[in-house]
Simulated assay, not measured.
Amino acid sequence: MDFDFSDDQQQLRDAVARWVEKGYSFERRQSIASQGGFSREVWNELAELGLTALTVPEAYDGLGQGAVDVMVVMEELGRGLVMEPLAQAFAASAVLTQFGSDAVKQAWLPQIASGEKLVVLASQERKARYRLDVCDAKASKSGDEYSLSATKNIVPAGDQADSFIVPAQLDGKLALFLVEKSAPGVSTRGYATQDEGRAADLICHAVPATLITSNGLPALTLAQDIVNAALCAEGVGVMEQTLKLTTEYMNQRKQFGVAIASFQALRHRVADMKMQLELARSMSYYASLKLGAPAEERHTAVARAKVQLGQSMRFVGQQSVQLHGGIGVTDEYVGSHYFKRLTQMEMTGGDTLHHLGTVSAHMQDSAGVFA
């Protein structure tokens, strides 16, 4: 299989990398973090780069690109610890494209592509423990209109978003709705996350809603798989930069008159970090390439990738702190922020144990047995 990137994909990578280097410095990130963890100005810059339009079909003012292009972008954003939830734009555009009516597509896809509207998933409830089929939210229909009541937790940039994709029970079956933040009965409670990003609880009381699809679980699963595949790619970028920071520090830090990078035992630990990074990279590729597969195959592939990424992110983050010593957890040092991001990513979109359960449930009876 050819894993070389096309010239267009390489140019896309270079463009995003240049923006991260010149436009998203650590100092700017910390300034955004101190102001709440989300910047509409940065979101507009991502839109100007064409990233919010990346997966929107060309018929709706998008670029019509695929999963590999998303992977390339997310790796570079990971290297810069960019906090704005770009993966949500990819998930929203996919759900609306594949499941929305023509009217919904015409109304929302061009606005997502331009960056004018930030649409995010609001799928998790407190007791769900990452399961998408656990949903207490209720929707009802009156004539041609729908209303919805729900409480959703840990919604990415929820108090800054313009609209939400919300699952709710409709006539005993999970359906998917679009809810505007400006609708009467909508309130949000925002807070900073452990990695200095932004999330919120979403509370809806008899809120007017637009039906996306009455068969909500397949659409919601697709959205979460896209977010998790993007998270895997972002994790590769975060780990790559973490490894780079660690090796640079080891070449500068001296003990007994020599750089600690010369100590064989520490070099072995760095080699283990590199191995975990490459295992994660291969599974990130696997997840992205499987996004176009049938639903069950896609979901299992993303779960497998998330298991490996979870293990790799925990290992690389913890080893980096150990090799740095005390400075590795000080707020003034950039490496500590990579560690915090890796720690949170392992638990985002389903932690390692959750996805290990998914992988286990989809194993065949003959798994591991060679006749």
Score class of each variant (00 low, 15 high):
Ala87Gln: 13
Ser312Cys: 06
Ala206Pro: 00
Leu121Cys: 08
Ala53Lys: 07
Met71Asp: 15
Glu240Trp: 13
Trp19Phe: 15
Val329Leu: 14
Asp159Gln: 10
Arg189Gly: 05
Gln319Gly: 05
Phe177Gly: 10
Val258Glu: 10
Leu86Gly: 02
Gly235Trp: 01
Ala175Met: 03
His324Glu: 00
Leu46Trp: 03
Glu234Leu: 13
Val227Ile: 15
Ala233Ile: 04
Phe26Met: 04
Arg18His: 08
Ser163Ile: 05
Ala89Asn: 01
Gln255Tyr: 13
Val134Ala: 13
Ser312Thr: 06
Thr188Asp: 01
Ala94Glu: 10
Met275Ile: 14
Glu196Lys: 15
Gly100Ser: 08
Leu132Thr: 09
Cys204His: 07
Gln111Tyr: 11
Tyr60Cys: 01
Phe99Ile: 07
Gly197Trp: 05
Ser320Cys: 13
Met273Arg: 06
Cys135Trp: 00
Ala303Pro: 02
Leu118Gly: 05
Ala367Tyr: 15
Phe26Gln: 04
Phe263Ala: 09
Gly23Ser: 12
Gln308Cys: 10
Gly172Arg: 10
Gln344Met: 15
Phe99Leu: 06
Met345Pro: 11
Thr348Gln: 14
Gly197Thr: 02
Leu12Glu: 00
Gly317Ala: 06
Tyr286Ser: 14
Asn215His: 14
Ala287Phe: 03
Leu77Ser: 02
Arg126Lys: 13
Tyr130Ile: 09
Leu202Asn: 03
Arg341Asp: 09
Val270Arg: 02
Asp8Gly: 09
Ser6Phe: 00
Glu180Thr: 07
Ser288Val: 05
Met283Asp: 12
Tyr191Ser: 14
Cys232Ser: 11
Asp365His: 08
Glu116Trp: 02
Asp144Cys: 00
Leu46Ser: 10
Thr55Asp: 01
Thr213Lys: 05
Gly158Leu: 03
Ser142Thr: 12
Val20Phe: 05
Ala305Cys: 11
Glu84Ile: 04
Ala15Val: 01
Gly357Lys: 07
Arg253Thr: 15
Phe263Glu: 11
Gln194Lys: 13
Ala150Ser: 08
Val321Ser: 07
Arg126Tyr: 11
Phe99Met: 05
Leu46Ile: 07
Pro156Met: 10
Cys232Gln: 09
Val155Gln: 04
Met363Ala: 12
Arg13Met: 00
Glu41Met: 07
Ser93Lys: 06
Ile260Trp: 09
Leu323Gln: 04
Gly310His: 09
Gly235Ser: 15
Ile112Arg: 02
Arg281Val: 06
Phe315Trp: 11
Met83Ile: 05
Lys244Asp: 07
Pro218His: 02
Arg267Lys: 12
Lys105Pro: 10
Leu217Met: 11
Gly100Thr: 06
Arg79Ile: 01
Leu121Gln: 04
Val238Thr: 06
Asp7Thr: 07
Glu21Val: 03
Met275Asp: 05
Ala15Asp: 04
Gly62Ile: 10
Glu116Asn: 10
Lys22Asn: 12
Met345Asp: 09
Leu353Pro: 00
Trp19Asp: 11
Ala59Cys: 04
Lys181Val: 11
Leu356Met: 14
Ala230Ser: 12
Ala367Cys: 12
Val316Gly: 03
Pro294Ala: 03
Asp69Lys: 01
Ala15Asn: 10
His324Pro: 00
Ala103Pro: 00
Lys274Arg: 14
Glu278Leu: 12
His205Val: 13
Ser336Ile: 06
Arg29Pro: 01
Thr352Trp: 14
Gln111Met: 06
Pro156Asp: 08
Phe315Ala: 09
Leu176Gly: 10
Phe256Cys: 08
Asn44Pro: 00
Val316Arg: 09
Gly257Trp: 04
Val82Glu: 02
Val359Gln: 07
Cys204Tyr: 08
Phe38Asn: 02
